[in-house]
């Protein structure tokens, strides 16, 4: 369970190399933009996956925490604070608000939890549009400064004015988040998350503090959303209530579910595949959302485990078929 076969590791290494070398072969600024945004969405979606996929709590406030991170970085950097300080600070604010909201609301379950978090998301969205002194109202905050350059001894400095700089910045955070999540979900503590998801009363009866477990997962997931939001603010350069809106949440939700819940690669696959499909569908013009909506329904009916889940199932079938074949041939030879 904890080790992966060699060829999977090899696959991941190839993907990692491809990601690191991307600026050298990316065809144009357009593709580069989509990829960079997908990296940011992948970070946020991974956070949602921790809460939704591993701990089984349907949170519909993820866009709100993403937005809190984005507004945090926007407000602080506009006030002259360095991005490198503002980013962790905003993520901590996201996590802290997550704690405050999680304490009362995690007492509810299932659909009730989903709706309570949705309500919180809508409140953040409305407040971000109306608290003009803090958030700039519906115009939002614009002209957000780029992250300041990092001096590197003997090399010069790394700047963040180009797409390349922004891409590596996001990629670095995605890798850190994935690494941290990998360590977390394959630890004993990570197993308690899944125990809560699979059967909460049972987990309770074997001595797991289910409430604390859910709270830790919720807070950690929102911390990650805050990081992603902060990166978004720095890269887009302007934040408006859309960044905290419920459509953002729905997008993340679609990425998680269609990518594949409770797998580390699923949300990343979802965050890349779906925006790219959406861009590809631009030629449909007025019919784009019509067909996307129908597609969403079909995919969820025929691939309930998401893309990664579907691939795994296929892989298992192939393995089983091979094993049957070897045993059969073994029988034949004996």
């Amino acid at each position: 369970m904890f080790t992966k076969p060699i060829h999977t590791k090899l696959l991941y290494l190839v993907i990692l190399a491809a990601a690191l070398l991307l600026p050298w072969y990316v065809p144009d600024a357009y593709i580069f933009q989509i990829v960079t945004m997908s990296v940011i969405f992948a970070i946020s979606t991974s956070g949602m996956n921790l809460i939704l996929g591993y701990t089984g709590q349907v949170t519909l406030a993820h866009g709100a925490f993403f937005g809190i991170g984005a507004y945090g970085v926007a407000i602080m950097t506009k006030a002259g604070i360095s991005f490198w300080l503002a980013l962790p600070a905003s993520a901590l604010i996201s996590a802290f608000i997550g704690l405050l909201i999680g304490l009362p609301t995690l007492r509810t379950r299932g659909a009730y939890f989903a709706i309570v978090t949705l309500c919180f998301g809508v409140i953040v969205w409305i407040v971000s549009g109306n608290w003009i002194e803090l958030t700039g109202g519906h115009n939002g905050i614009f002209g957000i400064p780029r992250p300041s350059a990092i001096p590197v001894p003997f090399f010069g400095e790394i700047t963040f004015f180009t797409q390349t700089g922004m891409y590596y910045l996001s990629l670095a955070f995605l890798l850190i988040v994935l690494f941290a999540l990998h360590r977390l979900v394959y630890s004993v503590f990570g197993l308690t998350f899944m125990a809560v998801r699979n059967n909460e009363p049972l987990a309770d009866s074997v001595g797991i503090n289910t409430f604390t477990t859910k709270l830790v997962s919720f807070v950690a997931g929102n911390f990650i959303a805050g990081i992603a939001g902060g990166l978004y603010a720095a890269i887009i350069g302007a934040v408006s209530p859309t960044a905290a809106g419920y459509m953002m949440t729905f997008n993340f939700l679609i990425f998680v579910i269609l990518g594949g819940m409770a797998t580390l690669s699923g949300p990343v696959v979802g965050a890349f595949a779906i925006p790219i499909i959406m861009e590809f569908m631009q030629f449909l013009e007025d019919f784009r959302m019509l067909i996307f909506g129908a597609l969403l329904i079909l995919v969820i009916i025929y691939f309930p485990m998401g893309l990664v889940g579907g691939l795994r199932r296929l892989n298992e079938k192939v393995v089983a078929w091979r094993q049957r074949k070897t045993t059969e041939s073994g029988h034949a030879s004996s």
Partner: peptide
């Protein structure tokens, strides 16, 4: 013409596409 639904992410994508492609 491309649709951005007043979403900054989509608007930037569209502009990049219009400029590059």
């Amino acid at each position: 013409t491309y649709d951005d639904m007043i979403d900054p992410t989509a608007a930037v994508n569209n502009a990049r596409r219009l400029r590059a492609r």
